[in-house]
Design a protein around this nucleic acid. Structure first.
Lengths: 340, 340
DNA sequence: GGCCCGAACTTAACCGCTTTATCAATTCAA
DNA sequence: TTGAATTGATAAAGCGGTTAAGTTCGGGCC
């Protein structure tokens, strides 16, 4: 038989379409007995609501969008994205909401997608990744007046909701640890400087310099690529006065850096300590395994998804959701500097 | 102003809703001049079609589903998924079609999702990953009578469409290469034996044994995890008669295996050659970098997505799409065996 | 001039579900 | 006992498009 509709159910149960709709959505207007009967019929006929019809009726798309403007290949490279996607998806699935993914080449296309998807009522809200300093997406999305959950923060000067892990705190932990081991020359191979969390980490570092009386602390921005990670590492390890520890903003760069150290005959951790600000299988598979700041990215994304659903249900809300701070997991790549 | 509808455009342009619809969809029924006028008005009013309304009208969901039943964390670990997702997305985007992603815990949930999404007309078709031997999903999906594109194959006994890369050919290339280098004892750390491509690779290996007069060729199935990869490697390297080469079905296992070799003082490639059947950043970042069979997963997925769109447009089609065979990329992890 | 035809539009039904207005039958307060 | 409020249900109007079935009209043909 063709797909059954509520009209079929109504006929079979001997009631009106309206009654069926009320019954199926658990709202008042039908007696308990009728409701049960309708539900039974619907079940028997194997009925499922037609997505588009429902959306058209109640003006809910039943989907949220995630638009990424990194080059497409990054998706496969950085474990982070997979974690985020599956985490979001898990949170949304609890509600039957779908995740719509789009990978675009540049920020303009990203903005256009926000506008289009909103105008098309294709999604009920968006998840934003990698908040920037003075992020142009924020005012644009505020203007669109659509529920948005940013993964990252805290964000100054915006009415958008966000879910944030305390990167500063984590960076503090990392630097404190290295300082405690006795390191005085630390290089930070950072991510892209326009990212808010990059800036935050850099700030912590410069501040830590004074606090711990470190001799040298430099943050060097990169594009997160393994090649830049390698290049920078090669450069700093070629200097007369080498750092005794390097903190990498991503595990991909950390692994690339480790490779350079090996290639240059710099022993890890005896001559050089390596700490990755991002954990994943990658960091665990290397030899030595990398000390890293680890966090439950997937869980974070799941929580954020739930918050976004709340936001969609009640757009007057503004969510500032704190998620757990990354935790330092010491492995084999960190040790006191030589002669300490 | 509130979201404009075609009724608004119709009024403003002084025509009927129908004419507007014809004009916007580029179908006959309006003169070129009227069309231009309508388009201009639509553009001026910043009109975008309402997704749900359009779906309801033309009974196209405008989305395809990808349902994965691997544990959610795998998504972040295996670069493969990210590649596939972004590749599919790229192919679908050309058409404005969305990708709906679902990660479930078990095959039952996967099957249920196929049924539900089809019944809800939530998607117009599905992409299937990792075809199994006697895959129960195939008959179920055939019964649902919904367009499906399988990534993998060739598939015997099914009317479903598929896009396949010649794994056997690739495996041949790999074994021929190792044999040419002089290896006679080869171990294959395989993937899950129920996967069709695993079986295919294993078959090639046993066949190659005779052809190249190899002394030893074993395929050992695993669950693709780094830990199993490490365990198996440790086991075979602990034997009196060690293999001189190991072929891994995934880069994650290969890297784990490399770690074990280092840990046991087995030099790569002098004492042991390592070849990965999967390429990614991972394989390139290690030291030595891993010789691997590489392929354009993303491009493959993009092509598959296009084929699926064709299939949706014309469900009478059956697509058997050959994609490019993986190519061997020699790096530093393979060499002739000692004493050769 | 009458007839037929295709082009250019309009009308209105329809897709499947939600929701509002309406109504009949009860129940309840006075 | 009567009028008002409540309950359980119906009919019908959307939601924003698509599309089948008309309607007009100008022009070619005999």
């Amino acid at each position: 038989m063709a797909r059954p509709t509520i009209a079929d159910i109504a006929e079979r149960a001997g009631v009106s379409k309206g009654a069926v709709s009320f019954a199926l959505n658990g709202r008042p207007g039908v007696s308990e007995e009728t409701r049960r009967r309708i539900l039974a019929v619907a079940d028997e006929m194997n009925w499922r609501p037609h997505r588009a019809a429902r959306s058209l009726g109640n003006s809910r798309a039943g989907a949220v969008g995630l638009i990424l403007s990194r080059p497409a290949r990054t998706l496969g490279l950085e474990p982070f994205f997979g974690q985020v996607v599956s985490g979001l998806q898990a949170g949304l699935a609890e509600d039957g909401t779908a995740l719509q993914l789009l990978v675009v080449e540049d920020p303009e296309a990203e903005m256009a997608a926000y506008r289009n998807w909103t105008a098309e009522k294709r999604v009920d809200g968006f998840v934003l990744l990698d908040p920037l300093i003075d992020d142009p997406r924020f005012p644009a999305l505020e203007a669109l007046d659509v529920p948005v959950m940013v993964l990252g923060g805290p964000l100054p000067d915006t009415s958008l909701s966000y879910s944030w892990a305390d990167d500063s705190e984590a960076m503090h932990e990392a630097v404190d640890y290295l300082a405690a081991l006795g390191h005085r020359h630390v290089v930070h191979v950072a991510g892209m400087p326009q990212f808010l969390h990059t800036k935050r980490r850099m700030d912590v570092l410069t501040e830590a310099k004074a606090r711990h009386e470190l001799a040298e602390v430099v943050s060097i921005p990169t594009d997160y690529s393994d090649s830049e990670g390698a290049v920078i590492t090669r450069r700093v390890l070629s200097r007369r006065e080498r750092p005794t520890a390097i903190v990498y903003d991503s595990d991909v760069m950390a692994v690339a850096g480790l490779g350079v150290a090996l290639e240059m005959g710099v022993r890890v951790p005896q001559d050089l300590s390596i700490l990755s600000f991002d954990d994943s299988l990658l960091a665990r598979l290397t030899h030595p395994a990398l000390t890293a700041l680890t966090r439950d990215t997937q869980g974070w994304a799941t929580e954020a998804a739930r918050e976004l659903l709340r936001l969609i249900a009640d757009p007057s809300l503004t969510v500032r959701h704190p998620s757990s701070t990354p935790v330092l997991v010491p492995r084999e790549s960190t040790a006191p500097p030589a002669g300490h």
